[in-house]
């Protein structure tokens, strides 16, 4: 059985946010909803400061805390390791948002037609038709089905079903991402992890995330400041 995972090479990333935009366009997520987000921050003091970047998709934890708190079984983990939301079951209690230590859940506060960058009278003039399909008999893909449900990164389940890579992986101009089967030692992602120093986010919580970051772990003692800190900015 495959176990999908991702490796993100921080030494290659230049912070262009093409992954963020690819995700938004592919999944039709509403305004202010970023299933993929890229943090930009600087470390150190002038003149020894350095700008660093950190992409943050859903970590698709093997031991996902969000699935355990869902009272209706809408948040579930598939046998191939993807942690998904069944939008037809979700009641919008937002427990998963509280349980997740990575902040990847985004609540759909508005009607789909009222929050897709412009206000539309009825329906939307554009949309990815793949999101109307069901995968393993559940409505799990796409970011703008109903008001009042929780959404998050699906590792592009509709693309994975076709044998394609997630949109962020496919769109990265400098090949930061590797995606594939973690259980297959010959897969692209396993090879990437094996070759380089890597770390994962908040493993001390026992969530067993399936997203690996290649590069030096962040030094907790260094002064660090986010570069996107403004209130006007829609920032998770």
């Amino acid at each position: 059985m495959v176990r999908y995972g991702m490796a993100i090479d921080l030494s290659r990333c230049m912070g262009c946010r093409a992954c963020v935009e690819a995700c938004k366009v592919e999944n039709n997520t509403p305004r202010g909803v970023f299933w993929m987000w890229l943090f930009r921050f600087e470390e150190g003091r002038y003149p020894n400061s350095k700008i660093r970047y950190l992409s943050r998709p859903c970590q698709h934890c093997d031991n996902a805390p969000c699935t355990k708190v869902c009272p209706v079984g809408a948040r579930f983990k598939r046998s191939d390791g993807l942690v998904l939301t069944d939008f037809e079951r979700c009641i919008g209690c937002r427990y998963c948002e509280v349980a997740c230590p990575y902040g990847v859940n985004y609540f759909n506060w508005k009607k789909p037609s009222k929050n897709q960058y412009y206000e539309w009278e009825e329906g939307l003039p554009y949309g990815n038709p793949d999101h109307e399909l069901k995968y393993e008999e559940r409505l799990v893909s796409g970011g703008n089905h109903f008001v009042g449900v929780m959404g998050k990164c699906t590792f592009c389940v509709h693309r994975v079903a076709k044998g394609l890579k997630p949109a962020c992986v496919a769109n990265c101009p400098v090949n930061v991402f590797s995606f594939g089967d973690l259980d297959d030692p010959e897969s692209e992602v396993s090879q990437a992890i094996a070759k380089k120093e890597h770390f994962q986010l908040q493993i001390e919580l026992g969530t067993k995330p399936k997203v690996y970051y290649l590069g030096t772990p962040l030094d907790p003692l260094k002064p660090r400041k986010a570069l996107d800190t403004f209130g006007e900015e829609v920032n998770p």
């Binding site: 946010r17 002038y46 960058y117 900015e233």
Partner: peptide, 28 residues
């Protein structure tokens, strides 16, 4: 890095990322 000259700030997907002008100044 998000924008091309001044002709992309009106693109809502990109404007959302960096919506405002700001003055970058050394903290000292």
């Amino acid at each position: 890095i998000e924008f091309k000259q001044s002709r992309s700030t009106f693109f809502p997907l990109l404007n959302e990322l960096v919506p405002k002008q700001r003055l970058l100044i050394n903290s000292a």
